[in-house]
Protein backbone atom coordinates (compact mmCIF):
# COMPACT_ATOMS: atom_id res chain seq x y z
CA UNK A 1 0.00 0.00 0.00
CA UNK A 2 1.14 3.55 -0.58
CA UNK A 3 1.38 6.00 2.28
CA UNK A 4 -2.03 7.52 1.45
CA UNK A 5 -3.81 4.17 1.05
CA UNK A 6 -2.34 2.94 4.29
CA UNK A 7 -3.44 6.11 6.08
CA UNK A 8 -6.99 5.76 4.82
CA UNK A 9 -7.26 2.10 5.66
CA UNK A 10 -5.81 2.53 9.17
CA UNK A 11 -7.90 5.60 10.01
CA UNK A 12 -11.04 3.75 8.93
CA UNK A 13 -10.53 1.24 11.70
CA UNK A 14 -8.81 3.53 14.20
CA UNK A 15 -10.31 7.02 13.68
CA UNK A 16 -8.92 8.19 17.02
CA UNK A 17 -5.29 7.83 15.86
CA UNK A 18 -3.57 11.17 15.26
CA UNK A 19 -1.61 11.54 12.05
CA UNK A 20 1.72 13.32 12.32
CA UNK A 21 2.74 14.99 9.07
CA UNK A 22 6.17 15.48 7.60
CA UNK A 23 7.86 12.11 8.04
CA UNK A 24 9.06 9.79 5.34
CA UNK A 25 6.58 7.15 6.47
CA UNK A 26 3.07 7.37 7.80
CA UNK A 27 3.30 8.33 11.47
CA UNK A 28 0.44 7.68 13.89
CA UNK A 29 0.07 8.68 17.51
CA UNK A 30 -2.10 6.44 19.59
CA UNK A 31 -3.13 6.18 23.23
CA UNK A 32 -1.14 3.86 25.47
CA UNK A 33 -4.35 2.07 26.48
CA UNK A 34 -5.13 0.97 22.93
CA UNK A 35 -1.56 -0.02 22.05
CA UNK A 36 -1.96 -3.76 22.50
CA UNK A 37 -5.12 -4.09 20.38
CA UNK A 38 -3.71 -1.80 17.76
CA UNK A 39 -0.41 -3.71 17.58
CA UNK A 40 -2.21 -7.05 17.36
CA UNK A 41 -4.34 -5.81 14.48
CA UNK A 42 -1.34 -4.38 12.68
CA UNK A 43 0.31 -7.75 12.79
CA UNK A 44 -2.68 -10.02 12.18
CA UNK A 45 -4.76 -8.27 9.51
CA UNK A 46 -3.63 -9.60 6.16
CA UNK A 47 -3.90 -6.26 4.36
CA UNK A 48 -1.47 -4.61 6.83
CA UNK A 49 0.66 -7.55 7.96
CA UNK A 50 3.32 -5.60 9.83
CA UNK A 51 5.53 -8.54 10.67
CA UNK A 52 8.86 -6.76 11.10
CA UNK A 53 9.57 -4.40 14.00
CA UNK A 54 12.79 -2.96 12.68
CA UNK A 55 13.42 -0.31 15.30
CA UNK A 56 12.00 0.50 18.70
CA UNK A 57 13.12 3.40 20.81
CA UNK A 58 12.11 6.17 23.18
CA UNK A 59 12.49 9.95 23.17
CA UNK A 60 12.58 12.10 26.30
CA UNK A 61 10.61 15.31 25.64
CA UNK A 62 11.20 16.61 29.19
CA UNK A 63 7.42 16.78 29.79
CA UNK A 64 6.71 13.23 28.64
CA UNK A 65 8.27 10.22 26.97
CA UNK A 66 7.39 8.99 23.51
CA UNK A 67 7.93 5.33 22.74
CA UNK A 68 8.44 4.93 18.99
CA UNK A 69 7.83 1.74 17.00
CA UNK A 70 9.09 1.43 13.43
CA UNK A 71 7.16 -1.28 11.65
CA UNK A 72 7.48 -2.75 8.21
CA UNK A 73 5.57 -5.37 6.31
CA UNK A 74 7.96 -7.61 4.45
CA UNK A 75 5.06 -8.96 2.40
CA UNK A 76 3.54 -5.64 1.27
CA UNK A 77 6.68 -3.50 1.62
CA UNK A 78 5.00 -0.63 3.45
CA UNK A 79 6.23 0.97 6.64
CA UNK A 80 4.60 2.69 9.56
CA UNK A 81 5.76 4.64 12.60
CA UNK A 82 3.67 4.33 15.75
CA UNK A 83 4.18 6.73 18.63
CA UNK A 84 2.83 6.38 22.13
CA UNK A 85 3.02 9.19 24.67
CA UNK A 86 3.56 8.11 28.24
CA UNK A 87 3.82 9.85 31.58
CA UNK A 88 7.38 10.83 32.46
CA UNK A 89 7.05 10.48 36.22
CA UNK A 90 5.59 7.02 36.12
CA UNK A 91 6.61 5.62 32.74
CA UNK A 92 4.72 2.42 32.07
CA UNK A 93 3.60 0.76 28.87
CA UNK A 94 2.51 -2.69 27.70
CA UNK A 95 5.21 -4.91 26.27
CA UNK A 96 4.86 -6.10 22.69
CA UNK A 97 7.47 -8.82 22.92
CA UNK A 98 4.86 -11.57 22.47
CA UNK A 99 4.04 -10.08 19.05
CA UNK A 100 7.53 -9.26 17.84
CA UNK A 101 10.26 -11.19 19.63
CA UNK A 102 12.87 -8.58 18.78
CA UNK A 103 11.10 -6.31 21.28
CA UNK A 104 12.39 -8.41 24.16
CA UNK A 105 15.93 -7.03 24.00
CA UNK A 106 14.88 -3.64 22.66
CA UNK A 107 12.50 -3.12 25.58
CA UNK A 108 15.22 -4.12 27.99
CA UNK A 109 17.44 -1.50 26.41
CA UNK A 110 14.78 1.20 26.72
CA UNK A 111 14.18 0.17 30.34
CA UNK A 112 17.92 0.36 30.96
CA UNK A 113 18.52 3.77 29.42
CA UNK A 114 15.17 5.54 30.03
CA UNK A 115 13.61 3.67 32.92
CA UNK A 116 10.40 2.87 31.05
CA UNK A 117 8.65 -0.10 32.65
CA UNK A 118 7.21 -2.59 30.16
CA UNK A 119 4.30 -4.47 31.70
CA UNK A 120 4.17 -8.23 31.12
CA UNK A 121 7.73 -8.35 29.88
CA UNK A 122 9.09 -11.75 30.97
CA UNK A 123 12.58 -10.67 31.93
CA UNK A 124 12.84 -6.92 32.40
CA UNK A 125 16.30 -6.09 33.73
CA UNK A 126 19.19 -3.88 32.74
CA UNK A 127 21.04 -4.99 29.64
CA UNK A 128 23.88 -2.59 28.83
CA UNK A 129 24.61 -1.12 32.25
CA UNK A 130 25.37 -2.95 35.46
CA UNK A 131 22.49 -3.94 37.69
CA UNK A 132 23.42 -1.41 40.38
CA UNK A 133 23.67 1.59 38.07
CA UNK A 134 22.00 4.74 39.35
CA UNK A 135 19.67 6.65 37.04
CA UNK A 136 18.81 6.40 33.38
CA UNK A 137 21.49 7.94 31.13
CA UNK A 138 19.45 8.87 28.09
CA UNK A 139 17.04 11.00 30.11
CA UNK A 140 17.65 14.69 29.50
CA UNK A 141 18.09 15.50 33.20
CA UNK A 142 20.66 12.77 33.82
CA UNK A 143 23.75 14.03 35.59
CA UNK A 144 26.97 12.04 35.82
CA UNK A 145 30.00 14.12 36.81
CA UNK A 146 32.31 11.11 36.58
CA UNK A 147 31.52 9.67 33.17
CA UNK A 148 30.24 12.72 31.29
CA UNK A 149 32.72 15.51 30.70
CA UNK A 150 31.14 18.85 29.88
CA UNK A 151 33.22 21.23 27.78
Amino acid sequence: MTKEELKESLLNVYPEAVVEEGGEWLTLQIEAASLLNFARDLQNKAEWDFNYLFCQTCVDWKTHFTVVYFLRSLTHRHSLVVKVKIDRNNPEIESVQHLWKTAELNEREIFDLFGVKFNHHPDLRRILLTDDWNGYPLRKDYEDPVNIIKL
Binding site: N51, Y52, L53, F54, L74, W100, K101, T102, N106
Partner: peptide, 9 residues
Protein backbone atom coordinates in the same frame (compact mmCIF):
# COMPACT_ATOMS: atom_id res chain seq x y z
CA UNK B 1 9.03 -16.58 10.51
CA UNK B 2 11.32 -16.53 13.51
CA UNK B 3 14.03 -14.61 11.66
CA UNK B 4 11.45 -11.93 10.87
CA UNK B 5 10.06 -11.88 14.39
CA UNK B 6 13.51 -11.56 15.95
CA UNK B 7 14.23 -8.64 13.63
CA UNK B 8 17.15 -10.39 11.95
CA UNK B 9 18.57 -8.67 8.92
Amino acid sequence: EDAISYGCS
